[in-house]
Design a protein around this nucleic acid. Sequence first.
DNA 1: CTGCATGCAAATAGTTTGCATGACG
DNA 2: CGTCATGCAAACTATTTGCATGCAG
Lengths: 133, 133
Amino acid sequence: MCHKLKEVGYKLTPQRLTILKIMSERTDHPNPDTIYSALKMQLPTTSPATVYKTLAILKKLNEVLEIQYSNERNRYDGINPLPHPHISCIKCHNFSDLNLMAYENLLEKMERQTGYKIHSMNLLIEGVCPDCQ
Amino acid sequence: MCHKLKEVGYKLTPQRLTILKIMSERTDHPNPDTIYSALKMQLPTTSPATVYKTLAILKKLNEVLEIQYSNERNRYDGINPLPHPHISCIKCHNFSDLNLMAYENLLEKMERQTGYKIHSMNLLIEGVCPDCQ
DNA sequence: CTGCATGCAAATAGTTTGCATGACG
DNA sequence: CGTCATGCAAACTATTTGCATGCAG
């Protein structure tokens, strides 16, 4: 991530480095506010604007995946920035990746079926997880 | 729709009837603002609040499907209120249903694979439609 | 030392809420 | 005629923007 930022000409500030670290470590798909809280722990004078600006950059560089989540705020995945399916529990709000073997095939199949040149396929499943049932 | 509303005890006001009409006729998955504009044509003194309140009711009664659409505002499908996949063109912003034959099978398969009791599966594909290529 | 990044505050946009008036049943 | 719905305005929330100051390169 650092390399990519530098390469494209962005400065490596402490704020950005910290956000990169957070995004590359967390597996829980944090939203901007969660990221801001984590960032503030280490840099108390930071602002939400910095988080939003940095996420925008990372998103543009495809270093982070933005995930729509019901009517809640967006979540971000900095570990696997390629579009992939997610599953979320409506009770405990657990939010995790979903390994769907047929996913890649599906994409090609869809292109053939629709004639579209597909840029992204977003699949979000919501339900009640085994523990909450 | 009317029947369902009455049944559950909601009053059939001109505003609601007009919104129901709009939602049952439009195939373009309008957002709240589009619905409000269409409503205002027939009832000029109406307000956005009424649209939001009515959509909330219809959504709760499963008479309308709410669709997440990238970072744009939600869209609503009053014709087929059951969750189903959508495909959208990032150039002309066409937004349409997608007939995906394997969809129902996929749901059962997912329940078996994940152990979740699935409430909804939202699939949104974005790309460039044949006309825009 | 030059320009981009930060952080604050203000602005914006979408949606929700409170409440007085009005209309459905 | 009682109750619920409406419509306005204000509140609210999340995000974006403008701008003066500060720091990376």
